[in-house]
């Protein structure tokens, strides 16, 4: 099968790759670009572990073709921290013990970041519904919701620029 050449931007960097037409963006990230932070929990858009943003829009990368990324702007978990500075969400997830096994954590962080960009002061209800597409089997979500609430409060306080 002839591959397709794709030029795109990932976490601010220009990236080029060749992929097969039926290859998902998730497979491209993981298998061709060694960006294994996005996880495949289901491959059908039901678990959110592969969450990334494309042109700022939160999506499941398992439901995007690699060829579709041409000219787009992709952001993954690997781009969340700025150098040695963690994003407030990353810090709050650690402080609140909002992860146990950690497999769902990248997806939650990417999704929560997208939420706080759209809605800096979400209610618990809004957080829970926004994150309903991110499955966590370890925590029962309690500490995840609290971590997002706390990160939102901190970011609203402006103490740490995100």
């Amino acid at each position: 099968m002839a591959g397709t050449h794709v030029k795109t931007t990932i976490n601010g960097d220009s990236v080029e790759y060749v992929c097969e037409a039926d290859e998902t963006l998730l497979d491209v990230l993981r298998n061709r670009l060694a960006l294994t932070g996005a996880k495949e929990g289901c491959g059908t858009g039901d678990c959110g572990a592969c969450s990334v943003t494309v042109d700022g829009r939160l999506v499941c990368s398992c439901l995007v073709l690699g060829v579709e990324a041409e000219g787009r702007n992709v952001a993954t978990i690997e781009g969340l921290a700025q150098g040695e500075h963690l994003h407030p969400l990353q810090r709050k997830f650690l402080e609140h013990a909002a992860l146990q096994c950690g497999i769902c954590t990248p997806g939650f962080l990417v999704a929560a970041k997208a939420l706080l960009e759209k809605n800096p002061d979400p209610s618990e209800h809004e957080i829970r519904f926004w994150l309903a597409g991110n499955l966590c089997r370890c925590t029962g979500y309690d500490k995840i919701v609290r971590a997002v609430q706390d990160a939102a409060a901190e970011m609203r306080g402006g103490r740490h620029a995100a």
Binding site: G45, G48, S51, V54, R57, L58, V59, C60, L63, V64, A111, A114, L115, W130, L131, A132, G133, N134
Partner: peptide
């Protein structure tokens, strides 16, 4: 229809 992620697509 689906999650926030699905809504994006």
């Amino acid at each position: 229809i689906g999650s926030t992620q699905i809504q994006g697509r």
